[in-house]
């Protein structure tokens, strides 16, 4: 009879009543709309007329004929491939330093975390845009060292790196998860290893890293999915255009332009479904590869 509260005597189990809001939300705002967008992706719906069936035409055009899709995929993949490793690298390095029993840990931890908390806001994106502009803060600082920097945000070769920097700047939250993971590692292994004369470098690669792989894996998956979905920084830094010359045209930004700029709802729905498939594919790959490199303690 463990935990079997009443209500079931009266017909409808209490659980269903408790779940009523969620049922409404799940069917009305999640599952229903997801299926509707799948259906829309086979139409040319433009919000005004009635949707006309076009079969696979949207998908064919996305995959073969739309050069902006190709560019946005390139920009997005470059962003994911650069921002995630650097962010996690910084997070792990700083977490390792903080985990050495250093004085003032709570203060450092808080200071490093602050950017993660503020980074999603428009305020920080506008700050970034001014810091990396031609006469912005970064170039003023570089000038002190006699370096003349370019206009980072308006140069198509460098614009994407300002977005990568903004993402890496927010390494605080994975750092906190790494710190929590490092705390759990058994101390006695390190003591035994030190007695056996293992160098700190050896200990890092042979003990810490393997034991920490579940946490690394978690951070990797979460940050990768987040990076695929990033939108606000690119929108603010490029003024909504994805420029200069599409250099910051994230896939999500292109989707937004198609849907709400040109009202090509059917086409945008197809873009959204391809994004889902891409994210699911990357996640599945990560889980498959995890068998080879993630060590869960028996």
């Amino acid at each position: 009879m463990a935990g079997r509260p009443t209500a079931r005597r009266r017909g409808i189990p209490a659980g269903y009543i408790f779940l009523l809001p969620w049922f409404l939300g799940f069917f009305g705002l999640t599952l229903g709309p997801a299926l509707a967008s799948l259906a829309l992706s086979f139409t040319n719906y433009d919000l005004i007329g009635t949707p006309g069936w076009v079969g696979l035409a949207n998908y064919v055009r996305i995959l073969t004929a739309d050069s902006k899709v190709a560019e946005s995929v390139r920009v997005t993949l470059l962003y994911v491939a650069l921002s995630v490793p650097f962010k996690l690298g910084f997070a792990l390095a700083i977490a390792m330093i903080l985990n050495r029993g250093i004085a003032g840990l709570p203060l450092y931890r808080a200071l490093f975390y602050l950017p993660s908390l503020l980074g999603a806001s428009v305020a920080i994106a506008t700050l970034w845009r001014t810091v990396f502009s031609g006469d912005g803060l970064l170039n003023k600082v570089l000038l002190q060292f006699g370096i003349h920097g370019p206009s980072w945000v308006s140069d198509p070769d460098t614009a994407i790196y300002t977005l990568v920097a903004l993402s890496v700047w927010q390494f605080g939250s994975p750092m906190i998860i790494f710190l929590a993971g490092l705390r759990q590692l058994p101390r006695d292994i390190y003591e035994a290893a030190s007695l056996d004369g293992a160098t700190p470098w050896y200990q890092f690669w042979r003990i810490t890293t393997p034991l920490l792989t579940p946490v690394i894996f978690f951070n990797l998956v979460v940050q990768t999915i987040d990076a695929f979905k990033a939108f606000t920084p690119a929108f603010i830094i490029s003024g909504g255009t994805g420029g200069p010359i599409n250099a910051t045209l994230f896939y999500t930004l292109y989707l937004y332009q198609e849907a709400f700029g040109y009202l090509r709802m059917g086409y945008a729905a197809a873009l959204a479904w391809l994004l889902v498939i891409a994210i699911a594919g990357v996640t599945a790959l990560a889980f498959l590869s995890a068998r080879r490199w993630v060590h869960y303690e028996a």
Binding site: W22, F26, L29, T30, G32, P33, A34, A36, S37, L40, L47, I225, F228, K229, T252, L255, A259, M265, A268, A269, L271, A272, W273, L275, V276, I279, A280, T283
Partner: peptide, 19 residues
Amino acid sequence: LMLGTMMVPYQVTLIPQYI
């Protein structure tokens, strides 16, 4: 199902929700 919806990017429900 609840855990599953955490993985779904909002873009996929965005357009029908907007409509």
